[in-house]
Each structure stands twice: as C-alpha cells, then as structure tokens.
Design a protein around this nucleic acid. Structure first.
Length: 855
DNA sequence: GCCTGGACTTAGAAATCTGTCC
DNA sequence: GGACAGATTTCTAAGTCCAGGC
C-alpha cells in the first residue's frame, strides 16, 4: 500500500536534520560499545537493581570484552551468524552477561535456544521455521503457500525446552491466535469491584489531603456545589496530592459521585429531501438522519474515499430496509445528498449570523450543562470530568485505510451504559423511560461510565479531565518511571548492543528492535487485526517498511499510528545493518514480518527484567524528555524573551520530530509567511528613514555610529515604490470606506451624500513622516523598530519550522513539565508564555520546584 | 502460560474561541 | 465590528499494556 495519507516531503528533510538529534544516541552508543570492548564496562556500571545477578557481578568486563572480540570476527563478513563456520560461532559470548540476559528471556518465552549451539545456529539463523496459517491476518493473504512449507525441524532438544521447541522455530506471527470475529466474542459484565479487591492489596491508609480543600461536600450529595465553582486557576487553595508523594493510585477514591453522562439530543427531522436519480425522495426520520450524516461529509476527503462510501451505503440500505414503505434507493451513484448538504450549510451560516443575545443564550445553556454534568466529587473534592457526553451517532471516521470507515455508528441508549459511582452516592437518573445497563461501585478504575460502540466493539469511557488529580497522579507516575529509566539506560544499551551480535536470532531481533525503539523513539507495534487500518510500529514492521543503503543506512518508510507516514534514513551500527540484512534475507519477501521472532509481549517482558514496570513506551517518554532537556541547554542566557522562547520551541520541535508528531500544513501557510516578510521589509524601510532623520539632526553621528549610515539589506528602490504606493492605496481605501459610512449615515438622516469627506486625514509617508521629530523621539522610534523587526523575524523562523510539525502532542504527553518549569524559572520567562491555561492546570503538580531541577 | 478484553494514554482533526488588524 | 489567523478546546480514533480467565 502506498503511504498516501499525509506525505510531507519537506518534513522528511527536517526529520533527517533531526537525525542529528538522534545522534545524541549514536555517540553515546559508540561510547557504550567502546566501553564494553575496552573492558571498562563494569567501572561505569553501578546499577544496583541489576536483574541478571549470577555472572553479572563477577566479570562483566571480561565477558563484554570477550563478546566484542568475538563479534569482530563475526562481523567480518556479511554472512548471518549461522552461516559462519561453527568454530567461529561456538566462541559466541555465552558468558556475556548481557546477551545472556536477553537470551534468558528468550529461552523461556520463545524456548528458542537449544543447549546445543550448533543446532541453534542452524535453526535460528537460516530458516524461519514452521509457518502455520495465521488466522484472519493480512499477512496470510499476502503470503503464498510456499511460505508455509518452509518448516525445517530442530534436530535436538534440551529437556527443558522439549515442549516448546516447535514453537521456538516458528516465527511468532504464525503462532498467534487472532481475535475472533466481533460477533464471536461475548460481552462480559464489568468485573465486580469486590472480586477485584479481594485479589488486590488494600491500598495504603487513604490519601490524606495535605492542604485545605475547597468544595468539600458531604458524601452522598448529588448536586454540585455551585458556590465553590469559579476560575480554578485563581483558587488559592488546592488539593496538593503531589506533596505527600504517594503514587499508589490503585484505589482511586473512597467516596465518589457524579451526575452521569449526557446523551445527545433525539434526532429532529428537517424534512429536506435528498434526490435519487434526480427525483426527491421521502425518507423516514431514521433514514433521513443517516443521509444527513453523509451530507455532512460532502466536500471532505471522506466523500472521495470509496471504502467510506461503500460502508456508509451498506448501512444506509440497511436502515432504509426498515422503512415501512419500500425505498427505491438501490445504487449509491444515483444518490444526491446535496440538498441536505445545502441545508446544513444554511444552518451553519445562520449560526454565524446569530445575534449576540442568541449566541450568549446558547453559551449560557452550554455552561449550565457543563456545570451540572462536568464535575464529579472525589472524596469530597470537586473535580472536572473530561468527556461527560455520550458520543453521538454518526459515520465512523476511521483514519487512513480503515476497512470500517464510513460505517454507521449507532445511537447509544442508557441500557448500554454502565455507571460507576460510589456505593453511598445517589445514582444519577437515566433519561426518562430508560434504565442504566448496570451500576457498579468500582474504585479501582478511573471511569465514571462505560459503553461499547457497535462499529469496532470498542469500549468507550467517561473519564476525568486532564486537570483532575487522578490524571495528574498518572502523569507524575509516568514521568517518574521515565526518570527511573535514566538509571538503567546505560546498562540496557550495553545489553542490547551486545545482543545485536548474539547467536540466537530471537535475541538479535529483540536487540535490534530495542535499538530502534531507543534511538528512534518508535512505538512498540502491537499486532493488528484485519478489521483495522494497516499501520505498524517497531515489532510489527514488515519487509517492505525497511530498506538498506550500504554501507550503514537504514531507510524507514511506513504508516504508523493514525496512518501518519514515518520516513527516516538513519545511520546505524554495522551490527544493526547486518541484522536487518539477515532479517530480510530470502525467502522473506513483501508482507513478511521483519522481526518474526518478536512481539510486544516478549519485548516488554524482557524490559521488565531490566526495570520493574519498564515497557517500550517508557523509552519514548524518556527520550523525549531527555532530548528536550539537552536541547534547552542551547537557550541564550543573555537573550531576549523572544529569543529564549524560540530556543524553547526549537527544543520542543526536536522532540516532536523525534516522535514523528505531524500535522497538515495549513492552507494559508505560504501566503501568511510572505505577508509577514513584507511586513518586515516595510519596517526596515521605515527604519532606514528614521536613521536618516537622526543623521540629519546630527551628521557627526555618522562616524560614531556607522550603522546609522548603513543601507537596509533587502530594501531597494523598487520595494520603496511598491511599499509607498501600497500605503497610498490603503489610505485611499480607508477614505473610501469612511466616506461610504458617512454617506450611509447621512442617508439615514435624510441628508445629501458627500462627494468627499469634509475632514480628511492627510497622508504623511516616507521621509516626511519623520521630519520635525525630536532626536529623542527618533531614537525611541529606532529602538522600537529594531525590537519589532527582530521579533517578527523570529516569528517567521518559528512559523516556518513549525509548518508540518505538531508541538502540542509532545508537550502534553511526553515532555516532563518540570523541565519546562525549571527552564522558565532559570531563564526568567513567564510560565504562561510556554504553558497555556489548560497546561498550567494539567501540570499544576509540576510547578513547585527549584530552577535547578533536572529530569 | 497464553490470549484477550479492559483500561487507560496518545493522537490528529475539527470545532470553537480569542486576539489582531483594518 | 467584521474578517481572518492562530490558539485552544473538544472529540474520538488509535495506540499500549497488563490482569485475569481459560
């Protein structure tokens, strides 16, 4: 499939540039490699919570060194390790702790390593083994039968591995049992909290409030205390959960109440008729609603997406078939939804044209709803709910090539909704004539309500807002985990670097994947079903997603999350290059897994051995925050706030590029940049006039301040002409408008229209504008212009660099906010220049720290 | 021990709001 | 005050990952 979704070629260049940022790793890596090869590895390795005890503490240096020496011979040729003469492979670093650590896991999980080395070589390196049919997988369709026959058997088996040996030889993809069809999976009632609690350790003696609370209510109250409402940001008192440092949030509340979710209003038919074959068609309300959904996407890319149209039409026919009268609608191509689309456009226009009063009435109603349903009471504290609205029906807008995009998303009924609320609280009333599907009192989960949507059978939740203490605690926990990784990262890098040359294929795959996850911040890459868009992450990369460019470049080109294209050319170490070559070796072909002995489960299980709770995604957080902190060091200490902010945004941008956070370039980007550039030139022209005026006052300054006599770089006579005539034009236009306005007024008053304004503003432009100004005023003007020009120039740079890169995602999710807070303190920049109101609220927990705080 | 459903985080697009310029 | 652009908020799709059930 062609990566057609959001190709951004310039972005690629930017990304390449960002490879520089990635190289932070490269240099470190070579350090690590050198480290391990020169036998000094253990000197720097002070990890206390080392998980690989036995050999680890004995002679890591020796083993590391040994492994390196061996791998030298290993890497002398391009042959996979298995193809080397046994004498070479037999010397494999079996005592190398790190590689062993990786293999250890594989022994268990893959049961892939035979005790007999020779066998191992053959099995692992040469031939991906038995390929059973992968049920309902895309790969399956693409793989011809030949693939499935390549099934050499392992020759010997160790006792311990006897049972799983077969599997060990099988690329994992082929072992996986794929999800059953949606209909085949039964829906489970939510697990009872009581049952869960029995298994769980009772959480620590409740989280005490360390500060005075606001909005404390008696438990069981169901109405929200309006008096306590107000601008949260201005509230002095807050629930400073972060002070006590208890990060165990397995028990999320003791008492909890809320008002339940809000359902979308019932459909009100508009009566506008769509056409079929040119004839207006009467539709029953249910059908009209679905037709209106489609009319709403006319003019967007969805309309041009055949899958979207096909899925929509299938469901539309289904709805039509339920009408009492038989509908003539049979073919999509004969449908004309434009009358409804026009009606929708009219509605939109009407909304735009609403009077101030009408707008404020709507706003008031919205606020009232938010006030009523937008809050929950957690242990007596009023906290904001995130999405308290049940998703309205519509057409599923799956991204990329989602096979179900366009499918009708049905209206959710209260009977489908499960409410989670404190046992002591009053259960919110369901809409009249309805009942809740269930009511539970589970304080081990964060959701207030849940339901299952019909399109993908996904479970949806009503959750707390990002500013809530619950989410704040999760955030802090996440960043602390990433900081914890800092203590282990050297070791992990050393381990996977050694693992790159391990004899066992599974270990090499694991190590290579880890290398990418660490260096390139790739996502883990879970397997996906055939009812989802074909996107991949690290573990699910396929043959066609990675190409090699000798001597040491790897080119990635694949669609990642949200079908966003990831394009990157990276210089890698010899070992990685060689591994990819092996992983792509015959008989592998397009459609085959690159890492056929790896999946996210194995990867993460391995990672938890290095550090409890460590998973692939932690690397993204760690590397994002770490990169950000490093990049911020480039902030000019003496610079203006604007310059400091540019440095901040650049650091942010490096992270966004690393994480491949993209956005579509706005339509008017180029023209808006051109406009600003013209503005700068105009200011420069004005500056040149001011300078001349200053010199006219005091010609002696010419020597003292030669810059006053300097020509402006990009302001020439042509520009002057255009600029001045532009000013004149503008002036005339303003006069014309003013006259028009005046005459309208006169008309109302029954007066005769004027031919020209009585009081005209005279236009003074060019040098004349500065004649007669005092030297002092001119100097002030010059200073102002200098400042303005510099700031505007920086704006252009920032804008240009931000064209297709989305900074928000990394700022919200990956960069430890404490780095930003410390930076703002250190460089004396207002926090609100870098965090908007929402972020300040979301990261309130991060604001109380010293400027020397480090990630 | 494997698999999957459930719970949650992360993501870009779309909608809405806000500020600036004229 | 209207138009426009940019910022912010909302929406919900699409990921990750792990606990619990078989």
């Amino acid at each position: 499939m062609g990566p057609a979704t959001t190709p951004k070629d310039e972005e690629t260049d930017q990304r390449r540039e960002s490879a520089a940022a990635i190289k932070r790793g490269e240099s470190e890596l070579s350090d690590i490699e050198n480290d391990s090869s020169d036998g000094n590895a253990d000197a720097s390795d002070k990890d206390s919570d080392d998980v690989f005890e036995p050999d680890e503490k004995t002679t890591p240096a020796k083993s590391a060194s040994k492994s390196k020496n061996e791998s030298v011979s290993d890497s002398d040729d391009d042959k996979p390790l298995a193809d080397l003469p046994s004498s070479a492979t037999k010397k494999r670093p079996s005592t190398a702790n790190s590689a062993k650590a990786l293999s250890k896991v594989n022994e268990k999980q893959l049961s892939g390593e035979d005790e007999d080395d020779d066998d191992d070589e053959d099995d692992d390196d040469n031939t991906p083994l038995a390929k059973k049919a992968k049920k309902s997988s895309k790969e399956d369709k693409k793989k011809p039968a030949a693939k499935k026959t390549a099934t050499p058997k392992p020759s010997k088996k160790s006792k311990a591995n006897e049972e799983s040996d077969d599997d060990s030889d099988t690329p994992l993809a082929d072992k996986k049992v794929v999800k059953t069809e949606s209909g085949a999976t039964k829906r489970k009632a939510p697990t009872t909290p009581a049952a869960k609690k029995e298994k769980k350790e009772p959480s620590s003696a409740s989280k005490k409030k360390v500060k005075k609370e606001t909005g404390v209510k008696k438990e069981g109250d169901d109405a929200i205390d309006e008096e306590n409402e107000g601008d949260d940001e201005d509230e002095e008192e807050e629930y400073a959960w972060w002070v006590q440092g208890n990060m165990d949030n397995s028990e999320k509340w003791k008492t909890m109440s809320h008002m339940g979710p809000v359902f979308p209003p019932a459909y009100v038919p508009h009566g506008v008729k769509m056409k079929y074959n040119g004839v207006a068609i009467d539709l029953a309300p249910a059908s009209e609603e679905v037709a209106t959904f489609f009319a709403g996407v006319l003019g967007t890319n969805y309309e041009k997406n055949p899958t979207f149209c096909k899925n929509f039409f299938t469901d539309f026919l289904q709805v039509l078939s339920k009408e009492k009268k038989k509908s003539p609608i049979k073919e999509f191509s004969k449908c004309d939804f434009s009358p409804i689309a026009e009606y929708l456009a009219e509605l939109k226009e009407k909304r735009k044209q609403m009077t101030k009063d009408e707008k404020s009435t709507i706003k008031k109603e919205k606020l009232e709803l938010e006030e009523k349903y937008g809050w929950a009471i957690f242990d007596g504290r009023k906290e904001k709910v995130g999405n308290f609205r049940i998703e309205p029906p519509g057409l599923f807008r799956g991204r990329g090539d989602h096979p179900k995009t366009g499918t009708l998303k049905l209206r959710v009924t209260p009977e489908q909704v499960t409410i989670n609320i404190g046992a002591e609280a009053k259960v919110p009333e369901p809409p009249a004539g309805h009942k809740w599907g269930a009511v539970v009192h589970d304080n081990t989960v964060a959701w207030l309500a849940t339901w299952k949507e019909n399109v993908n059978d996904n479970i949806k939740y009503v959750l707390m807002a990002a500013t809530s203490s619950l989410k704040g605690q999760s955030d802090l926990k996440k960043f602390e985990k990433a900081r914890e990784l800092k203590k282990h990262i050297d070791k992990i890098r050393r381990v996977y670097t050694e693992g790159l040359k391990d004899k066992v294929m599974a270990t090499r795959q694991l190590s290579t994947a880890l290398y990418f996850i660490d260096r390139l911040a790739l996502r883990a890459g879970n397997e996906k079903g055939e009812d989802e868009a074909d996107t991949v992450g690290c573990c699910s990369l396929r043959f066609e997603h990675v190409t090699l460019e000798p001597p040491n470049k790897v080119i990635f080109d694949f669609l990642g999350k949200d079908s966003i294209r990831y394009e990157n050319t990276v210089e890698v170490t010899d070992a990685v290059f060689k591994n990819i070559k092996i992983f792509k070796r015959d008989p592998k072909k397009e459609g085959d897994m690159l890492f056929d002995r790896l999946n996210t489960g194995i990867l993460n299980k391995n990672l938890t051995q290095h550090m409890p709770g460590l998973s692939a995604k932690v690397f993204r957080t760690y590397n994002a925050s770490w990169t950000f902190q490093q990049e911020l060091k480039k902030t000019p200490t003496e610079g203006t706030v604007q310059e400091k902010l540019l440095a901040y945004n650049r650091a942010n941008r490096q992270v966004a590029i690393l994480c491949n956070h993209q956005r579509a370039a706005s339509k008017g980007h180029d023209s808006s940049v051109a406009k600003i550039m013209d503005k700068v030139r105009g200011m420069k022209y004005e500056r040149s006039l001011v300078k001349k005026a200053i010199l006219a006052h005091d010609p002696k300054l010419k020597k003292k301040r030669p810059e006053l006599d300097q020509e402006e770089s990009d302001v020439d006579e042509d520009f002057e002409e255009v600029y001045l005539s532009g000013l004149e034009e503008k002036h005339k236009e303003n006069e014309r408008k003013a006259l028009e306005k005046e005459n309208e007024k006169r008309k109302e008053e029954g007066l005769e229209a004027l031919k020209s304004l009585e009081k005209k503003k005279s236009l003074v432009i060019g040098a004349a504008a500065y004649e007669g100004l005092s030297e002092e005023k001119l100097e002030k003007k010059l200073q102002d212009l200098n400042k303005k020009i510099e700031n505007t120039k920086l704006t252009i740079v920032d804008k240009e660099e931000n064209k297709t890169t989305a900074l928000g995602t990394s700022k919200i999710n990956y960069i430890d906010p404490r780095i930003s807070v410390a930076w703002a303190k250190k460089y004396d920049v207002d926090l609100d220049k870098i965090f908007n109101r929402s972020l300040r609220e979301k990261f309130r927990w991060a604001t109380h720290l010293e400027e020397d705080w480090e990630f």
